[in-house]
């Protein structure tokens, strides 16, 4: 494992921890999109179908369990916790799941490396992860006033994506036959979705101001 991959996984982990910290300690999920969180739970559930059958490393198994556990617990908190769920911006978070899930499923059935159930589900999870942040970005755009933790959560997710691209470049030059078009293209699309957010995040950081998104 190279340094970019490790740093990418760590920022991904940090993003989830920041979100759990916000929800668990402040008992608020204001500004967090439940739609995006539900999509991530679906992403991990479909991607890690091989968790008990394909052993890669202890690191991989533990991280998979953490991502599965954290994504489902965030969804549980936002839906059912008696205090947290009251802070959820339900009226603003109106993005429709099937609008993203259906095209990704069709695409996974058409474009995959191997037409088996597990491979199609794995491919579907990659396509869905690429666009799962959209409800969150729409919600940020609508609420505009973003608290620090929500801003940091999205920033860390974007950093994770950027580091994964560096990881692929590194692997391409150091590992023979490391060519994975599906992973790369969906990963690139996902990273590009953060570009706009990153621009405003950088501006607010540079000017030492609270993050505001334009209407």
């Amino acid at each position: 494992m190279n340094i970019f991959r490790l740093a990418g996984d760590m920022t991904h982990l940090a993003s989830v921890l920041v979100l759990l910290l916000k929800i668990h300690t402040i008992k608020s999920c204001a500004g967090v999109s439940l739609k995006t969180q539900e999509l991530y739970a679906l992403v991990f559930a479909c991607r890690y179908l091989d968790i008990f059958t394909n052993f890669v490393s202890l690191y991989n198994t533990v991280m998979k369990l953490i991502f599965l556990g954290s994504s489902f617990s965030i969804v549980w908190y936002m839906r059912y916790h008696k205090v947290v769920r009251r802070s959820y911006d339900k009226d603003q978070d109106t993005f429709r799941h099937y609008f993203l899930v259906l095209p990704c499923l069709v695409l996974a059935l058409l474009i995959n490396e191997k037409f088996t159930f597990k491979e199609v589900m794995w491919t579907f999870s990659l396509y869905l992860e690429a666009v799962a942040i959209l409800p969150q970005l729409v919600l940020l755009q609508r609420t505009r006033n973003i608290d620090n933790l929500t801003g940091q959560y999205v920033f860390l997710l974007g950093a994770y994506r950027g580091l994964y691209i560096l990881n692929w470049i590194y692997r391409y030059f150091t590992e023979p036959h490391f060519v994975h078009w599906i992973t790369w293209i969906s990963g690139l699309v996902q990273t590009l979705l953060y570009a706009d957010f990153f621009y405003y995040y950088y501006q607010s950081w540079k000017n030492n101001q609270k993050l505001h998104l334009p209407a």
Binding site: R47, D50, N54, F67, K114, E119, W122, N167, H180, T183
Partner: peptide, 10 residues
């Protein structure tokens, strides 16, 4: 490689 079935990334 094309016969990769083990996905080693998260």
């Amino acid at each position: 490689s094309n016969d990769r079935v083990v996905h080693d990334e998260l």
